[in-house]
Write a protein that binds this DNA or RNA. Structure first.
Lengths: 237, 237
DNA sequence: CGCCTCATTGAAGAGTATCAAAAACTGTGG
DNA sequence: CCACAGTTTTTGATACTCTTCAATGAGGCG
């Protein structure tokens, strides 16, 4: 069956080809070709995929798991720039220019990746320029997120930033629950802190405060139930 | 003379076509075609080109002057996201998707613009897909800047953010001077404050402090001489 | 069950925002 | 070229928020 041929051994659910928007415009033949090109790799939780100032010459698609892309300042502070999960891709910046990476990439859980080498990808783009538009769309989406992030960090207080990350996580990693949205947190408190640019103690205090007020409920350290999404959204406006 | 034919009446120096990287891969014939399509517009200092939640259906190239792209929070705080000048373009996000704008655009000085309608631009891209790569490169450059901005706002103190904007401005608007780089500031103190997410008083205090230490020298309100660029760079690292 | 990691809480301190007032600058018109 | 008026900037005092440092508490995995 065609389904079998198109099945990528790493991506249990065909993620790296059929399911991601990047290749949605391709037909079966071309998908098959791409699957032939793909290199697979697996990383365990906590492992570093890519270090700062190294060469990244492939487009990487996440077929399973989650990663964080972050920088470390010379004072040792960590700033998380992206959290990516199944279906997301990264490394696109290095496809059109030759530079060393300017961040680190680490697996947040056991993860699998499909990698397409720069040269192969350029060939694909050449044959299917519409993929270029998809990449542009994704770049625009990321720009949107950063524009919002800069606005938040520049004009909003910490309540707004916490609300913002809770809403982002509830959209990406949340599932409807009897009285709200249950989030499976991809990050620890410290990770959240490094994502929004505050200290872990501040995150702790704010989350406790939000819980006291009934906006959220913390279930252990790895889950948060968002009980009042509307009020969180009001903090951001 | 060919030069005459290619001369765009708005852009005294042929900026909108020959001089901007976006169209650098086109030949004379195609440049001439684009010049025929372009609509010109002029705005005075302080005028609003585009308001929030409106339609922007053209790619706009700045042929003369400077603009700021900014948002206003519901508390009335302004966050400047971009400052663009001669040769820069914007509006590209709306070329591939139909959305209302999510920011305001205002002329920082008397400015002239060359506008290419969405439909025309898509036609150009169709005939010259290499322009798509140029747009992607520009998007990547902007992403880089925002990644840096988020890192700065998240992990660095205000000294670092002031240093960062001084270096950015000295690269964009600075000219070598006997003992440093003279910057013609595109923004007031308040503008700088709204660009890096602090108050105007803080900008004042920090600049005074930098002047006392001999890093910079303020010439009136519209010029700053960067005397010790190296030390400013150390603040950012 | 115990250990190690992660999270919470408290108290003190640093840094920026805010409010208020004075000073400096810029551009205009005489 | 100077004076004036409006705007912008600087400076000071105070308040508030977040950070830092320190200690306690809870969670999760072997």
């Amino acid at each position: 069956m065609k389904e079998d041929i198109l099945y990528c051994e790493t991506c249990r659910h065909n993620v790296c080809t059929r399911r991601i928007p990047l290749f949605s415009s391709l037909d079966e033949d071309n998908l098959r070709k791409i699957i032939g090109i793909i290199k697979r790799k697996h990383f365990k939780k906590g492992e570093l995929l890519i270090g700062d100032k190294t060469i990244l010459d492939s487009l990487i698609i996440i077929s399973r798991g989650k990663i964080k892309i972050f920088r470390i300042t010379h004072e040792g502070k960590e700033q998380i720039l992206y959290i990516f999960s199944e279906g997301d891709f990264f490394g696109e910046k290095n496809l059109i220019r030759n530079r060393l990476t300017n961040y680190n990439i680490e697996a947040l859980e056991d993860s699998s990746f499909c990698m397409i080498h720069k040269d192969d990808f350029q060939e694909i783009i050449h044959e299917h320029p519409q993929i270029c538009v998809k990449v542009m769309e994704e770049l625009c989406t990321r720009l949107d997120r950063f524009e919002n992030a800069v606005e938040n960090m520049g004009t909003k207080n910490v309540d707004a930033r916490i609300s913002s990350v809770l809403i982002e996580f509830s959209e990406k990693y949340g599932k409807p629950y009897k009285n709200g949205i249950m989030i499976n947190l991809p990050l620890t408190r410290e990770g959240i802190a490094n994502y929004i640019g505050v200290t872990r103690e501040t995150v702790s205090r704010k989350l406790s405060s939000f819980q006291d007020k009934g906006y959220i409920e913390m279930i252990g350290n790895k889950k948060i139930l968002v009980k009042d999404r509307v009020i969180l959204e009001e903090f951001i406006q």
